Amino acid sequence: MNKLNILIAGCGDVGCELARQLTAMKCFNVWGLRRNIAKLPADVNPIQGDLFIAERLGDWPEQIDYVVYAAASNGRSEAHYQLAYIDGLQNILNRLVNGRYQPTRIFFTSSTSTFHQSKGEWVNETSATEPVKFNGRIMLEAERRLQHAPFPGTAIRFGGIYGPGRTRLINRVLKGEGCPREPAVYSNRIHQKDCAGIIAHLIRRAMDNLPVDNLYLGVDCTPATTFDVLQWLGGQLNVSLDNTNYPSPQRGNRRCSNQRIIETGYKFYFPDYKSGYASLLHNRD
């Protein structure tokens, strides 16, 4: 069987993990587009380019069967988000159209910041989205561009991603910075390996001609309060936390349901924060 070509545009932490999972399946040629190709995993075909400059998208293969747009912003300003999630995506879509490519499907790594709910409510793929912050509004606009592209598209709204190199909460705990128990602030997260795992799973479904929706929530099975997560990490690291003098990290305070991706048969590597962080802490030793 001829291998399928998959282009990962913005092959950073999540993209590289996805590339490793896909190359292990032995049925894909994976092409990774990024500025620094030296950081690409072995067996990935390098494309040196810059997503944010339309004329510098590098040399692509003649055929592309699937595209994964997994760019990350270089900063937290509105201009940075505009560049990473709208301009960069549009550059890729334009190149696909102008090059007369016909990918089976494009996957876009979006964010749960698209939701506006902030009182601990449960949300899913059918919930209203009226974000008040620019990051959520920009992600929604990127999703709209994807859905109006001349190719099938799927956006996956990921929660807070953690994993190797993404240890913000661990670093906070090591400094002894807890947070108040009340008011409870719910957060949603997902291990980097499951971010890639969900995308790989959906690609396989598309290959098998199984239904793939245009939107999924990419979060683990256990929304939890930030207080509970920090306290658990403190116990694992034998660190006593100051829960009085540090505010809760800024989060949306909502609970995201992953039922839609579960119903496709996806099995999480790390279904909750305890299993995911335990693995991270073990590999840290």
Rank of each mutant, 00 (worst) to 15 (best):
K133F: 11
L217V: 14
P164H: 08
A142K: 04
Q147I: 03
R168P: 11
Y277I: 12
F28E: 11
A54E: 12
G276D: 10
S275N: 10
G12T: 01
D213K: 11
W232L: 10
R35T: 04
D194G: 04
F134C: 13
E62A: 15
N171P: 09
L280N: 11
N253R: 02
F115H: 11
N135V: 14
K3R: 14
R145E: 14
L51H: 06
C179E: 07
P103G: 08
A155G: 03
I199W: 01
W60S: 15
P247E: 09
R255C: 11
N74K: 12
D228E: 15
G178E: 13
A206H: 11
S111R: 02
I53K: 15
D59A: 14
Q117N: 10
Y273W: 04
R144W: 05
A155P: 08
T104H: 06
S110I: 06
Y162L: 08
A70V: 03
R56Y: 03
L217T: 13
Y246Q: 10
G165H: 05
K3Y: 04
S248F: 02
A72N: 09
A24V: 05
V97G: 04
Y216S: 12
S279G: 09
Q192H: 00
G12R: 08
V132H: 12
S77Y: 00
L146M: 09
L33S: 05
D208E: 15
L40R: 05
T167K: 12
I156L: 08
G163N: 01
S240R: 07
G75T: 07
G252Q: 08
S257H: 03
G265N: 11
E130Y: 07
L233Y: 03
E62Y: 04
P103A: 03
L40D: 12
L230Q: 05
Y162R: 10
G276Q: 04
N5T: 10
S73C: 03
P249W: 01
Q102N: 13
L83N: 14
L237E: 09
V67F: 01
P131T: 10
S127W: 03
G234H: 01
Y273P: 06
R100Y: 05
A24Q: 10
C195Q: 02
A70I: 04
Q117G: 08
N209C: 13
P249C: 02
W60K: 15
Q259F: 02
N36S: 15
I190Y: 01
S110L: 02
I92N: 05
A200F: 07
Y269N: 14
N214M: 05
R189E: 00
E121L: 01
A24G: 08
S113Q: 06
G165R: 10
F268A: 04
R284D: 11
G153N: 06
N214K: 07
P183G: 10
R35P: 11
D220G: 02
V212M: 08
K274D: 07
K39T: 13
P131K: 02
R95Y: 00
P180C: 12
H148R: 13
K267W: 04
E182L: 12
I161C: 12
I47F: 00
A155Y: 01
N91S: 03
E263F: 00
W232M: 09
R284L: 15
L18Y: 09
G163R: 00
A128N: 14
G234T: 01
N253A: 06
N258S: 09
E141A: 14
L4E: 15
N45V: 12
A84H: 00
V44M: 01
